[in-house]
Amino acid sequence: MFGYIIRRAVSGILVLLATSVAVFALFFYGPSNPALAYCPETRCTPERLANITESLGLDRPVLEQYGGYMKGIVAGNDFEAGAISIPCDAPCLGVSFKLRVDVADYLLARFPATLSLAVGGVAIAVTLGTALGIFASRVRGTLADKLIVGSSLVINAVPYYLVALLAFLYLISEWGIFPQSGYVSPFTAGPISWAAGLLLPWLVIGITSSTQYARFSRGSMIESMNEDYVRTARAKGLSDRMVTLKHALRSAVVPVVTIMGLEFAALLAGTIFTERIFDIQGIGKTALDAIGTKDLPIIAATVLIAAAFVVTANIVVDIIYSLLDPRVRLS
């Protein structure tokens, strides 16, 4: 089992490397010249542009640039451009010349907001979704079942940003049912104001992505209730509760966990909307802002962090698999 997890981790690192190459290539061969971003439009002479290009190292061969980037991640890399000098310790994801900051430090400060948002949202989605799914599977064919399946389809069909936007407009701005959203640190401002600021975003993420979990857990519950070993459990004389929760649910969880890994990527994409609409200073909003200002080092770093997020989530999923299923654990 240990070897299994190590193998997954190694392949995760390979995925991250491939992502970094792709991101790097995109910028190097991309349509916009990053140096232009630092060249004030009115006073941008060709000489000045060439200067900036050189100081950013953009004139050097692509491999060398990539090597420098990788070296920065491992060993740190101090940046100097003209009079400005920005120290960048390992892991260095580059510096933003726009903001004159170390990208890693800058993003690290915004990371807790995104993490709080994601973990809380997933927790609500999984609990709510699987609970609804199991309930629907137990009352299959009744009105309640049809209601759950139907409403989950409707919610799924509405674009996520619309749900988030409407929720914000009505539930916070218009009616004031929920407290003003935003992120504060639970350590400095206290857990209550932390949770209050994230409450509506959590619910929006949780409810919208719970629909997937509900449909999948309903389907896999129905399937596993028809398994031979569930019949065996009933034949033993176990109570319906035990049969459902101990025998059927344990195996029905496996496909739900798979969805969790996949949903995580979708959730990150959604974070951009969530953070923008609810005004939360997290990675997603930072990425969006950086795209506006063509701040390439930040964009690159956010992509890498998102990839790391997804890779980690999948390793967690694999670990959960092996905990659930002895056939994975003992192979």
Binding site: G3, Y4, I6, R7, V10
Partner: peptide
């Protein structure tokens, strides 16, 4: 013969 692989880090 079908090969059987080890369960370690490197198969």
């Amino acid at each position: 013969y079908f090969p059987v692989q080890s369960a370690g880090v490197i198969r």
